[in-house]
Amino acid sequence: MATITLKGNPITTNGTLPEVGSKLADFSLVKNDLSTTSLSDFNGSKLVLNIFPSIDTGTCATSVRQFNTKAGNLSNTKVLCISRDLPFAQKRFCGAEGLDNVITLSDFKDGSFGKTNGLEMIDGPLAGLNSRAIIVVDENGIVKYTEQVVEIANEPDYESALAVL
């Protein structure tokens, strides 16, 4: 388990992020058109997984905007923005913001992505949502970088995440 904070108050996650050098566990997440996607759908591409509690909060929205700008044009790289928001909210946000360099994916059905990757907050006011984290994987799904953001209200370290690409 990891201990993170929300405005200084401790929150526990259900585990820890995948180890650098390990293979990212397969996943089933919901796309904006309500179809599902899995890790194998991205074979051959580097991935930046921008994971956060809700796209309707300031810091989460900022991280989606930042990755849209910073990583959207990197060669052979896809940015997956993952939360437990409904796909409709994710689509509305990206449409209103004109964001088309990121792919929003929802873990709303059963939270299995968050549970498998040690991201689910198990206590505090956001219990059941995914914590703020970054996971970068190479073309073969091997984890190259992780960051569990210690204070949920803080943005991730964009530059360190992108440097491993």
Rank of each mutant, 00 (worst) to 15 (best):
L86G: 09
L29Q: 06
C81M: 05
N43K: 15
Q66M: 13
S54K: 15
D100G: 09
K70M: 15
A89S: 14
A96Q: 14
S83G: 09
T36S: 13
G72F: 05
K46H: 04
L86D: 11
S38I: 02
K78F: 14
N73T: 13
F93V: 03
P87R: 09
N50I: 08
K78H: 11
G95P: 00
T59V: 15
V102I: 12
I55F: 09
S45E: 13
A71G: 12
G95K: 00
C81I: 07
I82P: 00
L39R: 10
I82Y: 07
V48Y: 08
V30F: 01
L47P: 00
A71N: 04
V48M: 11
N101D: 12
F67T: 07
T59M: 14
F52L: 15
L80I: 14
L39V: 06
V48C: 10
F52C: 13
L74Y: 00
D100I: 00
A71L: 07
G72Y: 03
Q66W: 03
D41S: 14
N68Y: 12
L39I: 07
S54R: 15
L39H: 03
R65I: 06
N68D: 15
D41I: 07
V48Q: 07
T57H: 12
F88P: 03
E97I: 11
T37C: 14
K31N: 14
V102D: 06
C60S: 15
S40L: 08
I55H: 07
A61V: 04
N101V: 08
D100Q: 04
G98Q: 07
R84F: 02
V102N: 02
D56R: 01
N32H: 02
L99P: 01
Q66H: 09
K91N: 14
S54Y: 10
T62Y: 05
T77F: 03
